[in-house]
Amino acid sequence: MEIIFNTPSAPKETENIENKQNFHIVTPGEQITSDPAFMRGHGTYTQEDVVMASVAGVVERVNKLISVKPLRTRYNAEIGDVVVGRITEVAQKRWKVDINGKQNAILLLSSVNLPGGVQRRKTELDELNMKSFFSEGDLIGAEVQAFFHDGASSLHTRNLKYGKLRNGSLVVVPPALVRRCKSHFYTLPCGVDLILGLNGYIFVSKHPDKKSEELSPEELYSNKNEEITFYQRSAIARVCNCIKALAKHYMYINDSIIIYAYEASLPYKISDLLHDDICEVIVEKAKLQIEMQQTL
């Protein structure tokens, strides 16, 4: 068996990207503009009519809105975001969910599908049986519905594509690498389902045999996994490693770059994808393909 001990080596010089785009990077306390016409967004504050940055990051300007996007931050929820979370606590009529944000999100009992039909009335029995729906440690896919006044987000799983997650494993990446797109649920050509949570939690699973509409109420909240073949398991492991490689090189994560990275990784063994040098090769190839596609 092979056990490798590396010694640290000097990082490669990053190529000069000044000519590609004009990044305006600011640090806290730096003045951005003193033009009163601009509205301030996240990451800024005013001091005597001057807009100053309150985080270290890149200045983003959308029409008249100036905001500073920090280089690394905890996930900030917005209404309508698709997130993957883990139940941390079962409380009175609600669950507390960890979504990698500043606070734990809340999933109210009234925001989940109760077995027995969509329009069923909530009974006292449901409150006592909350643990049979979601218990501590479960992974769920949900959407941010609203905010409480203290800033905690309120989630709901009232769509059949949300709910308890099974048949797969979780990959955690920095939240900034997952950008908002039309859909966050993908099925890759290798037979792997992907849920790209905007909070940086990505769930890679086997494409289910049964569609979520066909699931009976008991199966909706069951913890039982389906049968997963060796080939499906290796595909899931390969995709997980590709996502981790992309995250290590700070590439934006979406379905197309994952597919390119997957194809680039096929010549290698799955466990080889954990080595840094092979990661670099795959990420470079995927980057090239993305750029080619963008120029088309």
Partner: peptide, 15 residues
């Protein structure tokens, strides 16, 4: 086939 593709007696890389 573990979650990251390693076999049962494979180690990750050390630095």
């Amino acid at each position: 086939m573990r979650n990251d593709g390693r076999s049962r007696i494979a180690y990750r890389d050390f630095t």
